[in-house]
Amino acid sequence: MSILVGQDTRIVVQGITGKQGTFHSMQMLEYGSNIVAGVTPGRGGVKFNEAVPVFDAVETAVRELGANTSIIFVPAPGAADAVLEAAASGITLVICITEGVPAMDMIGVLSYLRGSNVRLIGPNCPGAISPASLCRVGIMPSEIHTPGRVGVVSRSGTLTYEAVNALTQFGIGQSTCVGIGGDPLVGTSFVDVLTMFEDDDETEAIVLIGEIGGNSEQEAAAFIKSGGVSKPIVSLIAGQSAPPRKRMGHAGAIVTGKSGTAEEKIRALSEAGTTIAPSVESLGEVMKQVLRGSTA
Protein backbone atom coordinates (compact mmCIF):
# COMPACT_ATOMS: atom_id res chain seq x y z
CA MET A 1 0.00 0.00 0.00
CA SER A 2 0.88 3.64 -0.11
CA ILE A 3 -1.17 6.74 0.65
CA LEU A 4 -3.36 8.97 -1.54
CA VAL A 5 -2.17 7.65 -4.91
CA GLY A 6 -1.42 4.07 -5.97
CA GLN A 7 -2.53 1.22 -8.18
CA ASP A 8 -6.24 2.10 -7.93
CA THR A 9 -5.69 5.69 -9.01
CA ARG A 10 -7.54 6.62 -12.22
CA ILE A 11 -6.43 10.07 -13.25
CA VAL A 12 -8.22 12.83 -15.12
CA VAL A 13 -6.00 15.77 -16.08
CA GLN A 14 -7.82 19.12 -16.00
CA GLY A 15 -6.11 21.47 -18.42
CA ILE A 16 -4.44 18.63 -20.35
CA THR A 17 -4.12 20.60 -23.61
CA GLY A 18 -2.26 23.55 -22.02
CA LYS A 19 1.55 23.81 -22.08
CA GLN A 20 2.15 22.61 -18.51
CA GLY A 21 -0.67 20.07 -18.69
CA THR A 22 0.71 18.54 -21.87
CA PHE A 23 4.31 18.39 -20.66
CA HIS A 24 3.51 16.76 -17.34
CA SER A 25 0.84 14.44 -18.70
CA MET A 26 3.49 13.03 -21.04
CA GLN A 27 5.89 12.60 -18.13
CA MET A 28 3.21 10.94 -15.99
CA LEU A 29 2.30 8.55 -18.80
CA GLU A 30 5.97 7.67 -19.35
CA TYR A 31 6.32 6.89 -15.66
CA GLY A 32 3.36 4.55 -15.80
CA SER A 33 0.57 6.61 -14.25
CA ASN A 34 -2.94 5.61 -15.27
CA ILE A 35 -4.33 8.72 -16.99
CA VAL A 36 -7.81 7.71 -18.15
CA ALA A 37 -8.89 11.08 -19.54
CA GLY A 38 -8.18 14.76 -19.93
CA VAL A 39 -10.55 17.70 -19.67
CA THR A 40 -10.40 21.02 -21.50
CA PRO A 41 -13.73 22.80 -21.83
CA GLY A 42 -14.35 23.44 -25.51
CA ARG A 43 -11.85 20.85 -26.74
CA GLY A 44 -13.89 17.72 -26.09
CA GLY A 45 -13.57 14.96 -28.68
CA VAL A 46 -9.84 15.18 -29.43
CA LYS A 47 -7.30 12.61 -28.26
CA PHE A 48 -4.25 13.47 -26.20
CA ASN A 49 -1.10 11.66 -27.38
CA GLU A 50 -3.35 9.70 -29.75
CA ALA A 51 -4.66 7.63 -26.86
CA VAL A 52 -6.17 9.60 -23.99
CA PRO A 53 -9.69 10.92 -24.65
CA VAL A 54 -10.25 14.61 -23.92
CA PHE A 55 -13.70 15.64 -22.62
CA ASP A 56 -15.45 18.96 -22.09
CA ALA A 57 -16.41 18.13 -18.52
CA VAL A 58 -15.01 16.16 -15.59
CA GLU A 59 -18.30 14.34 -15.04
CA THR A 60 -17.90 12.56 -18.41
CA ALA A 61 -14.49 11.23 -17.33
CA VAL A 62 -16.01 9.98 -14.06
CA ARG A 63 -19.10 8.44 -15.64
CA GLU A 64 -17.54 6.83 -18.69
CA LEU A 65 -14.05 5.93 -17.51
CA GLY A 66 -14.28 5.78 -13.72
CA ALA A 67 -11.83 8.62 -13.02
CA ASN A 68 -11.37 9.03 -9.25
CA THR A 69 -8.43 11.44 -9.03
CA SER A 70 -7.95 14.79 -10.71
CA ILE A 71 -4.78 16.77 -11.30
CA ILE A 72 -5.27 20.44 -12.16
CA PHE A 73 -3.02 22.52 -14.45
CA VAL A 74 -5.71 25.12 -15.16
CA PRO A 75 -4.31 28.72 -14.94
CA ALA A 76 -4.98 30.59 -11.68
CA PRO A 77 -8.09 32.54 -12.76
CA GLY A 78 -9.94 29.27 -13.43
CA ALA A 79 -8.30 26.99 -10.86
CA ALA A 80 -10.91 27.34 -8.11
CA ASP A 81 -13.64 26.58 -10.62
CA ALA A 82 -11.74 23.48 -11.73
CA VAL A 83 -11.50 22.20 -8.14
CA LEU A 84 -15.21 22.76 -7.57
CA GLU A 85 -16.10 21.02 -10.83
CA ALA A 86 -14.00 17.99 -9.89
CA ALA A 87 -15.58 17.83 -6.43
CA ALA A 88 -19.10 18.17 -7.83
CA SER A 89 -18.44 15.44 -10.40
CA GLY A 90 -17.60 12.66 -7.98
CA ILE A 91 -13.79 12.93 -7.89
CA THR A 92 -12.55 12.11 -4.38
CA LEU A 93 -8.93 13.27 -4.63
CA VAL A 94 -8.13 16.62 -6.27
CA ILE A 95 -4.50 17.65 -6.68
CA CYS A 96 -4.17 21.30 -7.66
CA ILE A 97 -0.74 22.16 -9.06
CA THR A 98 -1.67 25.73 -10.08
CA GLU A 99 0.26 28.53 -8.40
CA GLY A 100 -1.17 31.97 -7.64
CA VAL A 101 -4.80 31.15 -6.87
CA PRO A 102 -6.37 34.21 -5.17
CA ALA A 103 -6.88 33.71 -1.44
CA MET A 104 -10.56 34.64 -1.62
CA ASP A 105 -11.10 31.87 -4.19
CA MET A 106 -9.50 29.34 -1.86
CA ILE A 107 -11.63 30.52 1.07
CA GLY A 108 -14.71 29.68 -0.99
CA VAL A 109 -13.34 26.33 -2.17
CA LEU A 110 -12.27 25.19 1.30
CA SER A 111 -15.61 26.22 2.75
CA TYR A 112 -17.40 24.23 0.03
CA LEU A 113 -15.26 21.13 0.60
CA ARG A 114 -15.55 21.14 4.41
CA GLY A 115 -17.56 18.14 5.52
CA SER A 116 -17.44 16.49 2.08
CA ASN A 117 -15.55 13.30 1.24
CA VAL A 118 -13.35 15.13 -1.25
CA ARG A 119 -9.69 15.62 -0.40
CA LEU A 120 -7.85 18.56 -1.95
CA ILE A 121 -4.04 18.62 -2.08
CA GLY A 122 -2.56 22.06 -2.79
CA PRO A 123 -2.86 24.44 -4.52
CA ASN A 124 0.67 25.50 -5.46
CA CYS A 125 2.06 22.03 -4.84
CA PRO A 126 4.11 19.41 -6.74
CA GLY A 127 1.51 16.65 -6.17
CA ALA A 128 2.00 13.08 -4.93
CA ILE A 129 3.93 10.03 -6.11
CA SER A 130 3.96 6.39 -4.97
CA PRO A 131 7.02 4.79 -6.60
CA ALA A 132 6.11 1.14 -5.91
CA SER A 133 2.92 1.41 -7.96
CA LEU A 134 4.57 3.70 -10.51
CA CYS A 135 1.85 6.23 -9.83
CA ARG A 136 2.87 9.86 -10.24
CA VAL A 137 0.16 12.50 -9.96
CA GLY A 138 2.36 15.57 -10.03
CA ILE A 139 5.24 17.48 -11.54
CA MET A 140 8.18 15.98 -9.64
CA PRO A 141 11.10 14.51 -11.64
CA SER A 142 10.32 10.77 -11.77
CA GLU A 143 13.88 9.44 -11.86
CA ILE A 144 14.91 10.52 -8.36
CA HIS A 145 12.25 8.34 -6.72
CA THR A 146 12.69 4.73 -5.75
CA PRO A 147 10.26 2.34 -4.02
CA GLY A 148 10.70 1.96 -0.29
CA ARG A 149 9.31 2.54 3.17
CA VAL A 150 9.84 6.23 3.97
CA GLY A 151 6.96 8.67 3.55
CA VAL A 152 7.79 12.28 2.63
CA VAL A 153 5.52 15.26 3.28
CA SER A 154 6.50 18.82 2.45
CA ARG A 155 5.29 22.39 1.86
CA SER A 156 7.86 22.86 -0.88
CA GLY A 157 8.56 21.64 -4.43
CA THR A 158 12.22 21.63 -5.43
CA LEU A 159 13.34 21.27 -1.83
CA THR A 160 11.33 18.05 -1.69
CA TYR A 161 13.07 16.77 -4.83
CA GLU A 162 16.39 17.58 -3.21
CA ALA A 163 15.30 15.68 -0.09
CA VAL A 164 14.07 12.66 -2.04
CA ASN A 165 17.30 12.66 -4.02
CA ALA A 166 19.28 12.63 -0.78
CA LEU A 167 17.24 9.64 0.46
CA THR A 168 17.56 7.71 -2.80
CA GLN A 169 21.33 8.27 -2.90
CA PHE A 170 21.52 6.59 0.51
CA GLY A 171 19.49 3.65 -0.75
CA ILE A 172 16.38 4.75 1.14
CA GLY A 173 13.22 4.36 -0.95
CA GLN A 174 9.89 6.10 -0.54
CA SER A 175 6.36 4.79 0.02
CA THR A 176 4.66 8.04 -1.03
CA CYS A 177 5.94 11.60 -1.38
CA VAL A 178 3.37 14.37 -0.95
CA GLY A 179 3.76 18.11 -1.45
CA ILE A 180 0.94 19.89 0.41
CA GLY A 181 1.67 23.29 -1.14
CA GLY A 182 3.31 26.58 -0.28
CA ASP A 183 0.19 28.74 0.15
CA PRO A 184 -1.30 29.73 3.53
CA LEU A 185 -4.65 28.24 2.45
CA VAL A 186 -4.32 24.60 1.39
CA GLY A 187 -6.70 21.66 1.39
CA THR A 188 -4.52 19.15 3.23
CA SER A 189 -2.33 19.78 6.27
CA PHE A 190 0.76 18.10 7.69
CA VAL A 191 -1.49 16.51 10.33
CA ASP A 192 -3.75 14.99 7.66
CA VAL A 193 -0.80 13.40 5.85
CA LEU A 194 0.92 12.28 9.07
CA THR A 195 -2.31 10.49 10.04
CA MET A 196 -2.33 8.67 6.71
CA PHE A 197 1.33 7.68 6.98
CA GLU A 198 0.76 6.43 10.52
CA ASP A 199 -2.03 4.15 9.24
CA ASP A 200 -0.06 2.96 6.22
CA ASP A 201 1.59 -0.47 6.64
CA GLU A 202 4.14 0.29 3.95
CA THR A 203 5.46 3.39 5.68
CA GLU A 204 8.07 2.81 8.33
CA ALA A 205 9.40 6.31 8.89
CA ILE A 206 8.51 9.85 7.80
CA VAL A 207 10.33 12.92 6.51
CA LEU A 208 8.58 16.23 7.27
CA ILE A 209 9.82 19.29 5.38
CA GLY A 210 8.51 22.61 6.64
CA GLU A 211 9.39 26.22 6.19
CA ILE A 212 8.89 29.63 7.78
CA GLY A 213 5.45 31.21 8.03
CA GLY A 214 2.14 30.11 9.51
CA ASN A 215 2.02 27.50 12.23
CA SER A 216 1.25 24.22 10.47
CA GLU A 217 4.58 22.76 11.68
CA GLN A 218 3.58 23.55 15.27
CA GLU A 219 0.22 21.87 14.70
CA ALA A 220 2.10 18.85 13.40
CA ALA A 221 4.40 18.93 16.44
CA ALA A 222 1.45 19.07 18.84
CA PHE A 223 -0.18 16.15 17.02
CA ILE A 224 3.02 14.08 17.19
CA LYS A 225 3.52 14.95 20.85
CA SER A 226 -0.03 13.88 21.71
CA GLY A 227 0.74 10.41 20.38
CA GLY A 228 -0.74 10.84 16.92
CA VAL A 229 2.34 9.39 15.26
CA SER A 230 4.39 6.51 16.65
CA LYS A 231 6.69 6.13 13.64
CA PRO A 232 10.07 7.88 13.64
CA ILE A 233 10.15 11.30 11.95
CA VAL A 234 13.04 13.34 10.57
CA SER A 235 12.22 17.00 10.04
CA LEU A 236 13.82 19.79 8.10
CA ILE A 237 12.82 23.47 8.26
CA ALA A 238 13.84 25.92 5.55
CA GLY A 239 14.20 29.66 6.03
CA GLN A 240 16.42 30.07 9.10
CA SER A 241 18.20 32.89 7.33
CA ALA A 242 15.02 34.66 6.18
CA PRO A 243 14.38 38.23 7.39
CA PRO A 244 11.05 39.05 9.08
CA ARG A 245 8.00 40.48 7.23
CA LYS A 246 9.32 39.50 3.78
CA ARG A 247 7.49 37.02 1.59
CA MET A 248 10.04 34.38 0.52
CA GLY A 249 8.54 33.32 -2.80
CA HIS A 250 5.76 31.14 -1.42
CA ALA A 251 2.71 33.12 -0.38
CA GLY A 252 2.79 31.30 2.94
CA ALA A 253 6.49 31.81 3.62
CA ILE A 254 6.50 35.03 5.55
CA VAL A 255 7.47 35.55 9.17
CA THR A 256 4.88 37.85 10.72
CA GLY A 257 5.16 36.88 14.33
CA LYS A 258 7.19 34.73 16.68
CA SER A 259 5.45 31.47 15.72
CA GLY A 260 6.38 31.84 12.06
CA THR A 261 10.13 31.67 12.62
CA ALA A 262 12.29 28.69 11.75
CA GLU A 263 13.63 28.60 15.34
CA GLU A 264 10.15 28.19 16.83
CA LYS A 265 9.25 25.44 14.39
CA ILE A 266 12.49 23.57 14.98
CA ARG A 267 12.00 23.88 18.73
CA ALA A 268 8.43 22.54 18.54
CA LEU A 269 9.35 19.62 16.28
CA SER A 270 12.39 18.81 18.37
CA GLU A 271 10.35 18.84 21.60
CA ALA A 272 7.84 16.54 19.92
CA GLY A 273 10.63 14.00 19.57
CA THR A 274 11.38 14.27 15.87
CA THR A 275 14.99 14.25 14.68
CA ILE A 276 16.05 17.54 13.11
CA ALA A 277 18.16 17.26 9.97
CA PRO A 278 20.68 20.13 9.86
CA SER A 279 20.59 20.39 6.06
CA VAL A 280 18.74 18.86 3.15
CA GLU A 281 21.82 16.98 1.99
CA SER A 282 22.19 15.34 5.39
CA LEU A 283 18.68 13.87 5.23
CA GLY A 284 19.78 10.54 3.80
CA GLU A 285 22.38 9.96 6.46
CA VAL A 286 20.16 11.16 9.30
CA MET A 287 17.30 8.95 8.14
CA LYS A 288 19.65 5.97 7.86
CA GLN A 289 20.68 6.41 11.49
CA VAL A 290 17.07 6.85 12.59
CA LEU A 291 16.02 3.67 10.77
CA ARG A 292 18.92 1.75 12.26
CA GLY A 293 17.96 3.00 15.73
CA SER A 294 14.29 2.08 15.32
CA THR A 295 15.00 -1.51 14.30
CA ALA A 296 17.78 -2.09 16.84
Partner: peptide, 27 residues
Protein backbone atom coordinates in the same frame (compact mmCIF):
# COMPACT_ATOMS: atom_id res chain seq x y z
CA UNK B 1 10.28 36.48 -6.31
CA UNK B 2 13.29 38.41 -4.99
CA UNK B 3 14.19 39.71 -1.56
CA UNK B 4 17.26 41.87 -0.97
CA UNK B 5 19.47 40.81 1.93
CA UNK B 6 22.69 42.17 3.39
CA UNK B 7 25.34 39.62 2.41
CA UNK B 8 27.65 39.37 -0.60
CA UNK B 9 26.75 35.96 -2.08
CA UNK B 10 24.24 36.46 -4.88
CA UNK B 11 21.96 33.41 -5.21
CA UNK B 12 19.84 32.20 -8.07
CA UNK B 13 17.78 29.13 -7.28
CA UNK B 14 14.68 27.46 -8.74
CA UNK B 15 11.94 26.93 -6.20
CA UNK B 16 11.21 28.93 -3.06
CA UNK B 17 11.89 26.13 -0.58
CA UNK B 18 15.20 25.21 -2.17
CA UNK B 19 16.13 28.90 -2.36
CA UNK B 20 15.56 29.23 1.39
CA UNK B 21 17.48 26.02 2.10
CA UNK B 22 20.35 27.29 -0.06
CA UNK B 23 20.45 30.59 1.86
CA UNK B 24 20.43 28.63 5.12
CA UNK B 25 23.39 26.53 3.94
CA UNK B 26 25.34 29.63 2.91
CA UNK B 27 24.72 31.23 6.27
Amino acid sequence: AYVKLDGDVGCLVNGAGLAMATMDAIK
